[in-house]
Design a protein around this nucleic acid. Structure first.
Lengths: 155, 155
DNA sequence: GTAACTGCAAAATATTTGCATCCTT
DNA sequence: AAGGATGCAAATATTTTGCAGTTAC
């Protein structure tokens, strides 16, 4: 993975620095989206807050990650797939926010639907965010509850 | 309109105060969405910033307005149609952000499309935001340019 | 060696909270 | 009159900017 990270940075003509490698690794290792705060916290070591801001901005500009809008003033970011180029991002998948576990996922396999706009409108970008319960959480809900050592657990 | 405003507030068992009337009127008069900052500015007179925060929050809780997600850490708000009830908001229209004039519109007539989620996922809410150029701006672009009194104008 | 990146300090913004006062009901 | 809403002050939190020191190439 370390190699992949270096590669991505180089391909985008960014110098390969520690913070960038660590933050990018985070995105690669997590299947989902991260908010600014998550990164400050999740990373084992502490990053300077400013570095995180600047790194995220750089990554967005280069098309390495993309933003996912939320209604709570907390933009989240997720890795882009390969065909994103600098400046123009081809976002043809939908985003899913699980209200149980709170994670945000890119559902790559679900294409954004066609929307017929009223006459006169032209669109250049469409963003679909769905809230609900994710597969994992639904599975847990349906799985039997076991009792072990005094704890009630879902498998 | 003053009457309508009073009515909406009463129907939601909110006391009818000056700030609430003014802010609600703003929403009624504008066909589009407003961000916190817009309200502080657009209102002829100055509201206390805190009052705006609290009023918006109250309106959202009551289902009078709803939030529209954006990618730039600036949530916007727009009036809900009648069938929104407290706590649960029925958002079955899409939102449009014009990249020319910057306005955010609720396209009431465009229903959100059906999206088929992968097995295991359940959805409770779907949000669609489209960026592009709105009707007005497209019209301006196509209209002839006239010269009047030394100014070049689009009609 | 040079340009780019980081981290600290601090400025600028944005949001939340407490409380005394004022307004609705 | 009582409860709720406002506005001020101030506490927090978030984001941006400048700059000097460090690192990648």
């Amino acid at each position: 993975m370390a190699i992949e990270v270096d590669d991505i940075l180089r391909r985008n003509s960014l110098s390969v620095t520690d913070s960038r490698k660590k933050i990018l690794s985070l995105f690669l290792s997590i299947h989902g989206a991260l908010a600014h705060g998550d990164i400050e916290r999740k990373a084992g070591e502490k990053f300077d807050r400013v570095t995180v801001y600047r790194t995220l901005q750089t990554f967005v500009e280069k098309g390495i990650i993309h933003t996912i809008p939320t209604t709570d003033n907390s933009v989240r970011y997720a890795l882009c797939k390969d065909n994103c180029t600098e400046g123009h991002h081809h976002d043809n998948h939908i985003h899913f926010i699980c209200m149980q576990c709170g994670s945000t996922l890119c559902l790559e396999e679900v294409l954004v639907p066609e929307v017929r706009l009223p006459k006169g409108f032209t669109s250049s970008e469409i963003e679909v965010v769905i809230k609900g319960i994710c597969k994992e959480c639904n599975n847990k809900k349906n799985s039997p509850i076991v009792e072990t050592a005094g704890l009630r657990l879902r498998l």
